[in-house]
Design a protein around this nucleic acid. Structure first.
Lengths: 114, 114
DNA sequence: CCGTATCCACCGAGATACTG
DNA sequence: CAGTATCTCGGTGGATACGG
């Protein structure tokens, strides 16, 4: 369950952005380039529902909303970083392995596909 | 990328099964109850492509195929376990948080939905 | 500024049946 | 035994446009 939560497309990026302190919606959106407002809202709401992220509304003009990691969310940073470290160390091997696998598959079907 | 790989529905379960040594297809299927052969094959193939799992065919009668973690796959066990430990420790809080969140949402819309 | 509304394409996953 | 072949469906994520 937890793996599926942190395994979704944007959650790990959001965590990365929030780990240094609370951020505004626009700031997160800018930091996580490529995310649409709808999806970012979805992601943040889900994390809020799970108690990993807090949402604070400031009654100002212009309106301001800040998202930050809750204490619970912060305890997730450790395990998350363990995986991140592993990923950075071994990403090359995985990519290489895929390349080899695909090349071989292509070679096996070369006659057919040609 | 790595998080999405290990965050899919069956991968973590497969890892759990293989961590104690290579297993046959049927054995994995039995251990990971609820998985269909098609999906299990998909999962294993993807892991094989990424170099995390090895596939060994024994030319016997009846045929036998064993899947096991590669050295690379084994290095993933550590980080994976860190997340698993976190999950087991905090799962209750997450569930509780969801409950609270949903209850409140329901209360807010009670009049409307009624 | 901070989102919501709507529509849609894609894909993971399941059910079922069949095969080397 | 160890898969493959089809078909189907629901839900995630994206594009675009609009609202409080």
């Amino acid at each position: 369950m937890v793996l599926q939560r942190i395994g979704d497309k944007w959650t790990p990026l959001v965590f990365q952005v929030l780990k240094d302190g609370p951020q505004r919606f626009s700031a997160i959106r800018a930091a996580v380039q490529g995310v649409t407002p709808k999806v970012l809202t979805q992601t943040l709401r889900t994390l809020e529902r799970d108690g990993l992220v807090s949402r604070t509304i400031f009654a100002e003009v212009p309106p301001r909303v800040e998202y930050g990691l809750t204490p619970l969310g912060q305890t997730l940073l450790g395990p998350l970083d363990a995986v991140r470290a592993w990923a950075e160390e071994h990403a090359g091997k995985i990519l290489q392995s895929r390349q080899d696998y695909d090349d071989q598959a292509e070679a096996s079907t070369a006659v057919v596909s040609k």
